[in-house]
Computed example of a mutant assay.
Amino acid sequence: MIVRIMGEGQVRLDDSHLAELNQLDDELLAEMESGDGEGFRRTLTALLDAVHRLGTPLPDDSLEPSDLILPAADATLEEVRALLGDEGLIPG
C-alpha cells in the first residue's frame, strides 16, 4: 500500500502493518473526541513515526496513487478532524 504524508511524500508500506496503524488511529480518534490535545499530538507523532519505521520511502520524483493520506506532523486537531472519515484516518 502507498501512504502519503502531507508535506513529506509517499511511503510504501506492507499491508501486514495495518493492525498496528489502526490501533494508533483508534487512539487518535478517541483523543480527538475527548479534546485531548496533548494526547492527540503524541499519538499523531507515533502514527507518523510508525509509517516511517515500517515503510520504505518512494523517490521524490515518483507519484503513485495513494491508498492512505495522513496529515503532516504539525497538523492541528481541527485540520485532522476535517480529514477524518467515519473510520478515522485509516479505514478498517
Rank of each mutant, 00 (worst) to 15 (best):
M1C: 13
M1P: 11
M1A: 10
I2R: 01
V3P: 00
V3E: 02
R4Y: 01
R4V: 06
I5E: 07
M6R: 10
G7F: 02
G7P: 03
G7R: 00
E8G: 10
G9F: 13
Q10C: 05
V11P: 02
D14R: 12
D14H: 15
D14M: 15
D15V: 06
D15R: 12
D15Y: 07
S16L: 15
L18A: 02
L18T: 03
L18C: 06
L18W: 04
A19Y: 11
N22W: 10
Q23M: 11
L24V: 06
D25I: 04
D25L: 01
D25N: 15
D25T: 05
D26R: 12
D26L: 09
E27N: 07
E27H: 05
L28A: 02
L28V: 01
A30D: 11
A30V: 07
A30G: 07
A30H: 04
A30F: 03
E31T: 14
E31I: 11
E31M: 15
E33W: 08
G35P: 05
G35K: 08
G35M: 09
G37S: 13
G37Y: 13
G37A: 14
G39K: 05
F40Q: 06
F40P: 01
R41Q: 15
R42M: 14
R42N: 15
T43L: 02
L44Y: 08
L44D: 12
T45R: 15
A46E: 13
L47P: 04
L48D: 09
L48C: 10
D49N: 15
A50H: 10
A50S: 12
H52S: 14
H52D: 10
R53S: 15
R53E: 13
L54W: 13
T56Q: 15
T56A: 13
P57F: 09
P57E: 14
L58M: 11
P59Y: 04
D61V: 06
D61W: 05
E64L: 06
E64R: 02
P65I: 04
S66D: 09
D67C: 01
L68E: 00
L68P: 00
L68M: 01
I69D: 09
L70T: 02
P71E: 03
A72K: 14
A72R: 14
A73I: 14
A73T: 14
T76M: 00
L77N: 06
L77I: 12
L77Y: 04
E78P: 03
E78F: 12
E78Y: 08
E78Q: 15
E78G: 11
E79F: 02
V80W: 00
R81N: 07
R81D: 09
R81C: 05
A82N: 09
L83K: 00
L84F: 04
L84T: 00
L84M: 01
D86L: 10
D86S: 13
D86K: 13
E87Y: 07
E87N: 14
E87K: 12
E87R: 11
G88H: 02
L89W: 00
I90R: 01
I90L: 11
I90N: 04
I90Q: 04
